[in-house]
Design a binder for these strands. Structure first.
Length: 108
DNA sequence: GAATTGACGTTCT
DNA sequence: AAGAACGCCAATT
């Protein structure tokens, strides 16, 4: 059976995010054809704990680590991003547009 | 079973 | 232009 659920698609795309790159919930949702379902992407990430999905590479459109609150530690998400060479300041990614990875364009 | 919330983003006013 | 409301699907209460 093809579990072509929204969540499965989100996990698949999120797993394809290259090292040192980040994307936004809306970008993934838009790639799935549901730009307005960005919230669902966040929900999917909530279950990402049970999946091998690098949720730390997914942030909101502003590049803010809105979901860092859901990680184990307080700065775990920021630490992971900095570990990949991404600069994070005040829970916000610096040069977000520079590290931005759009599945609808680059993954094409 | 129904109502509300939820890691957001778009659209209308 | 800025602010407020809505929309999407699923899970939780």
């Amino acid at each position: 059976m093809e579990e072509t659920n929204f969540f499965e698609k989100v996990y698949e795309v999120a797993r394809l995010i290259p090292y040192g790159r980040v994307t936004s919930y809306g970008a993934i949702a838009k790639y799935l054809g549901a730009a307005r379902s960005a919230r669902m992407v966040g929900w999917a990430m909530n279950n990402s704990g049970a999946k091998d999905v690098p949720a730390h590479r997914v942030v909101n459109r502003v590049g803010m680590l809105t979901g860092k609150q859901h990680f184990d530690g307080t700065n775990l998400m920021q630490q992971l991003l900095e570990n990949e060479g991404i600069k994070v300041k005040d829970n916000q990614i610096q040069d977000f547009q520079k590290y931005f990875w759009d599945p609808a364009k680059e993954l094409l």
